[in-house]
């Protein structure tokens, strides 16, 4: 009983408190860098697409709003198309969690309203940025042992040169 009255009183006192909300869009709230807003695809330090079309973001997506098709050139995998239907996206960030190459990232931009839903379907051209995003130094292909132009077998991080299988030496 007293608790209820106290609650009423304390709530009543909130009349004099400062408001925690701001009047968007006149006042824009400061967003932390890890804010989960619009999704982008980043490039590695060499300027190549980071996305290797592994499909893990698509499978991690709880609303199934990511679709892509793998293509390949000289050992590098890349998405032939990469489509995010933002009218379905819930900005949960699972795709970013799942991405093994830091390619897909959520950025602090949330102002993407449209009058037409088809305009919320973003293709690779709309998603791909020219920078590295949050992880400026990471390059998947420098770590993984696949051969790509400019990096032969045995030239990835912590790799020994290829074995000569014709030798009998131990």
């Amino acid at each position: 009983m007293f608790g209820i009255l106290r609650t009423l009183w304390l709530t009543f006192l909130h009349m004099g408190h400062r408001r925690v909300t701001v009047g968007y869009p006149e006042h824009k709230p400061p967003l932390p860098p890890r804010y989960r807003g619009r999704i982008i695809l980043s490039r590695d330090p060499d300027g190549m697409e980071r996305c290797v079309a592994c499909n893990l973001c698509a499978v991690a997506c709880p609303v199934d709003c990511i679709s892509l098709q793998k293509a390949e050139q000289d050992g590098r995998w890349y998405p032939d198309y990469f489509r995010i239907n933002f009218s379905r996206c819930i900005f949960c960030g699972m795709c970013e969690e799942a991405c093994p190459t830091y390619a897909i990232q959520l950025i602090p931009d949330f102002e993407m309203s449209e009058y037409l839903r088809p305009n919320l379907v973003y293709e690779k051209e709309d998603l791909l940025i020219s920078g590295t995003g949050k992880y400026p130094d990471y390059s998947f292909f420098r770590v993984a042992g696949v051969k790509i132009p400019g990096k032969d077998k045995g030239e990835a991080e912590r790799e020994a040169p290829p074995v000569d299988i014709h030798t009998l030496l131990p």
Binding site: A58, D64, R83, N85, V121, E123
Partner: peptide
């Protein structure tokens, strides 16, 4: 199965 809401969104 993935991408059901995006695969033919184009």
């Amino acid at each position: 199965i993935s991408g059901r809401t995006a695969v033919r969104a184009d």
